[in-house]
Structure formats: structure tokens, C-alpha cells
Amino acid sequence: MSATTSPMPNSSVPGRAKDRATSEALGRRRARADAIVRVLCTAATILGLLFLASILLTLIIRGAGGISLSVFTNVTRPPGSHGGLLNPIIGSIIQVFLATIVGTPIGMLVGTYLAEYAGESRFGQVVRFVSDVLLSAPSILIGLFVYQILVLPFGGFSGWAGIVALAIIVIPVVVRTTEDMLRLLPNTLREAVIGLGAPKWKMIVLVCWRAAVSGIITGVLLAVARVAGETAPLLFTSLGNLNWSLNLSQPMSSLPITIYSYAGSPYEDWITLAWTGALIITLGVLGLNIAARSVLRARR
């Protein structure tokens, strides 16, 4: 198939239009194909929305009943003693926030390198490829890797180890979106800035990044969304902590790990807390998304 397009298949010759019947039949077929595709696409969209609605509804039905002030003010406690989720919530926020802070600049720099510097160089190709592989690396293996390089040698689980594991997951997501978004900028933009005599780094930082900011933020949000719910990489890095602790050198609690262990427990109140935690984490991430989007829209 060639990229040069003709809007009407098999009908580029003016002579055929003389045959009215053929022309109308063709028109009907085209319209029918279009209608079918449009119905299917609308159905696909409704299906996608139904999935989201079903997830939210499930979380609300099972989790909303457990929401109370004590969930946010009490730390995790044994079954039957009115525990809350304070330490997992705070622990998750700290770890995800710091991991994003660590991972985003690295990811942006790599993405920028790929889009603006690498060109067709072999090194660029390899880095791009490696970043894509990293994107599909199972998160539990990343947790295992961090366990080997940070937990074992330094003699214990820690919030830092969890942050590093999450940051490694953040990087490739940001790389991909940064590169994609920078590549989509028209070259005329770059030429204009360079033509003004600006150094390249200023062009990138002040013009390209700014022009691509919405896409990059979308990428960062996707990354935050991904790590906020990550359980596997934290299992063997930050481990979890039942007690109140803000010390990043100690094991640190997180919402997904608490949900993971509570959901499989035999106790009614723990299971309810697991669903409540699931609702909180989902609403938190979704809320973050929506907030960032509206800020973005307001700026435009």
C-alpha cells in the first residue's frame, strides 16, 4: 500500500462516473461501511466506559461502607481492633512522590536525548530499545534487583529501596512519552528558535519542553498512576511497616502492600479495609489525574 492516498477507491477515473448506477452503488457501499464502522466505534467507546464504571462501582459498593474518619487517623492494627490506614497512605504518598521526583528528570533527559541528540546514532537506537524493554520489565524483577543491590548489602528493608524500585519504573514511561511528544513538534519551531541564535539547550528547555509540556505531564501522570498501585516491587524493598514511621531508612508502609495482604486475610474488618484502601488509592490516583488535567486546561 502506498502512502499517497486517493479518497475514493477504484474510482479515480472520471469516465466511470458516467455510469450512474455503478457510482451510486459505490456510494451506498461506502456509506454503509462508514456507518458500520461508526456504530462499532461508538460501541467500543461505551464498552471502555463501562469497564471504568464497573471498577468504580465495585470499589464503591465494597469499599465505601468502610470509609470513616478512623481510616485516616488510625494506623494499621490487628483484626477486630478498629485499625486504619494512616501509615500506608502516608507511606505510599512519600514513596510515590519521591520516586516521581527521582525518575522524572532522568526520564525527561533520556527522552530529550533520544529526540533531540541521538538522531540515527547506534547509541540512540540501543537506548531507545533498552528503554522499551525496561518498560515491559515485570515490576517484581525490578523489586528483586533493588533487593540485591540495596537491601542485601545495606542490611535491611527501607523506604529508600522502595523509592529506587519505583523510580526505575517511572523512568521508561517518561522516556517514551517525552520522546514521542518532542518528535511530534514541528521542525519549523526548532528552526525558528535556532534562527534567532538561541543555544540548543535553551531551545529545548524553553521552547520544546514548554511546547510538549502537556504530553510530558500526561506521561508523568501515567507513570505516577502505574507506580502508585505497584505492589510487587515494594514487597522486597520497602517491605511494609505496621507502625507509624516516617524514617526512610526503615521499612515503610504502603497502601498496595497493605491491600494485598489484607485482601487475602480471613478477617471481615481487614477485607473491608482492603476494599476501602483500594477505593482510596483509586480515587486518589484518579483525582490527581483530573486535577492535573484541569490545571493544564486552565493554563491554555
Binding site: 492494627r77 505496621l242 487475602g264 480471613p266
Partner: peptide, 12 residues
């Protein structure tokens, strides 16, 4: 994981 609940309660 088997004794987890009882350890948690003892811990409390």
C-alpha cells in the same frame, strides 16, 4: 502468612 493474624494481635 499462616500465623500472621495472631502475631499482629500479639504485637498490639
Amino acid at each position: 502468612s499462616f500465623p500472621n493474624p495472631v502475631y499482629q494481635r500479639w504485637g498490639e
